[in-house]
Amino acid sequence: MFRRALLQQSRLSLRSSVPRVTSTAPRFAATSARPAIPQLQSAAGRIRCYSTEKKADIKEEDVATEGKPATEPLKKEEEELKKITQELDALQKEVDTKDKEIKEYKDKFQRAVAEYHNLQSRAEREQKKAREYAIQKFAKDLVDSVDNLDRALQAVPEESRSNAERNKELVDLYNGLKMTEDILLNTMKKHGLEKINPLGEPFDPNVHEATFQVHMPDKEPNTVFHVQQTGFTLNGRTIRAAKVGVVSQPPK
Rank of each mutant, 00 (worst) to 15 (best):
9 Q>C: 12
11 R>A: 14
11 R>F: 10
13 S>R: 14
14 L>H: 06
20 R>W: 01
20 R>A: 04
22 T>A: 12
22 T>G: 06
22 T>W: 03
23 S>P: 00
25 A>Y: 03
26 P>G: 01
26 P>T: 03
28 F>N: 02
28 F>K: 02
28 F>W: 11
29 A>E: 02
34 R>I: 15
36 A>K: 05
37 I>H: 01
38 P>Y: 03
39 Q>G: 15
41 Q>N: 02
42 S>M: 04
42 S>D: 04
44 A>P: 00
44 A>W: 04
47 I>R: 10
48 R>G: 12
51 S>V: 12
51 S>A: 14
52 T>F: 13
57 D>M: 10
57 D>N: 10
58 I>L: 14
61 E>R: 07
66 E>D: 03
69 P>M: 04
70 A>L: 05
74 L>D: 08
76 K>S: 11
78 E>D: 12
79 E>M: 12
83 K>E: 04
86 Q>S: 05
86 Q>W: 05
87 E>H: 07
88 L>I: 15
89 D>H: 00
93 K>M: 10
95 V>F: 05
96 D>E: 10
96 D>W: 01
96 D>K: 11
98 K>L: 08
99 D>A: 02
102 I>T: 03
106 K>H: 11
107 D>W: 10
109 F>E: 09
110 Q>W: 07
114 A>E: 09
117 H>P: 07
119 L>E: 05
121 S>P: 09
122 R>F: 07
122 R>V: 06
125 R>K: 12
126 E>A: 00
127 Q>A: 11
131 R>L: 13
131 R>H: 06
133 Y>L: 14
133 Y>A: 10
133 Y>E: 11
134 A>S: 14
135 I>A: 11
136 Q>E: 14
136 Q>G: 04
138 F>Q: 11
138 F>E: 12
140 K>T: 06
141 D>C: 10
142 L>E: 01
143 V>H: 01
145 S>R: 04
149 L>K: 00
149 L>Y: 04
